[in-house]
């Protein structure tokens, strides 16, 4: 179903730095994100995970360094990368209307929109809610709708910034299942999470960020079994009792 065209991945970050208000928030970030493995970004609060993800997605411009996609997105093409935020911003219209809006924005012809939107709702289990106002959905349902909106655009990469923070365990399970399906459909998943159990369930590899720098990058099992750095070790010890 993906639009033909050369793949955008890998995404290469070269010497990325970001400073604001005289403070270095990110510095010396070199990172290559390949198609395939699910990447989990871990790190203490304020480490710069969200900023890094926004730079990858193009919402923030780095103050130094370069963000290189293999092929640029071209206007008029469906968006080939998408992002889901911790708190989804849904429009004050119906569940279905939120999806058809996103399709309209990327230029999907009118007659295709509703069918694609309905299909996307079916994949996240919201088909029965199509006509309800989006903002009356529960938190978990709203996040599923945000995932449907992102997935529907068939992105090559999906960025997720703590998509299950503030959700109850049932909702978290549903979101995780959807993220698995998105990955299975061929989309590269890059996710920030505070939930280490979730990182284990959903991650193939870990990028560990501390005070604006990438301190460690390794396969998920190794990261949890034998962290290579003192910072990662301290982070895991600090976080684990809670999960």
């Amino acid at each position: 179903m993906r639009e033909p065209g050369p793949p955008m991945l890998p995404l290469v970050l070269e010497g990325i730095g970001f400073s604001a208000g005289g403070r270095d928030i990110l510095s010396g970030i070199d990172l290559v994100l390949e198609a395939g493995p699910r990447t989990v970004i871990l790190g203490p609060n304020g480490a710069g995970k969200s900023v890094l993800m926004r730079i990858c997605h193009g919402l923030l411009a780095p103050t130094s360094g370069r963000v290189l996609w293999s092929h640029r997105e071209r206007p008029g093409e469906p968006r080939r990368q998408a992002m889901v935020f911790q708190r989804p911003v849904l429009l004050r219209r119906s569940v279905l209307g939120n999806l058809t809006f996103a399709l309209a924005v990327v230029g999907v012809p009118h007659y295709e929109r509703e069918a694609r939107a309905v299909a996307a709702l079916g994949r996240v289990g919201l088909a029965a809610h199509a006509r309800r106002p989006a903002r009356v959905l529960s938190g978990g349902e709203q996040q599923r709708l945000a995932l449907a909106r992102a997935w529907m655009l068939e992105p090559e990469v999906l960025f997720l910034d703590e998509p299950t923070a503030n959700l109850d365990p049932g909702a978290v399970r549903e979101i995780e299942a959807i993220v698995q399906s998105i990955h299975a459909s061929g989309t590269k998943v890059v996710m920030v999470t505070h939930n280490l159990g979730q990182a284990r369930r959903l991650g193939d590899e870990v990028v560990f960020l501390d005070r604006g720098r990438i301190v460690e990058r390794s396969a998920i099992d190794r990261f949890f079994r034998t962290p290579a750095t003192a910072q990662a070790d301290a982070f895991l010890k600090g976080e684990l009792p809670w999960h």
Partner: peptide
């Protein structure tokens, strides 16, 4: 302030964003 990032993430330009906000603020 609430919508900006989401709109840009969806690829909505100023025209689509303006109209969507006017609709939401009706």
């Amino acid at each position: 302030r609430e919508y900006a990032e989401q709109m840009r993430s969806l690829g909505a330009g100023p025209v689509a964003s303006s109209l969507a906000l006017l609709h939401d603020l009706r």
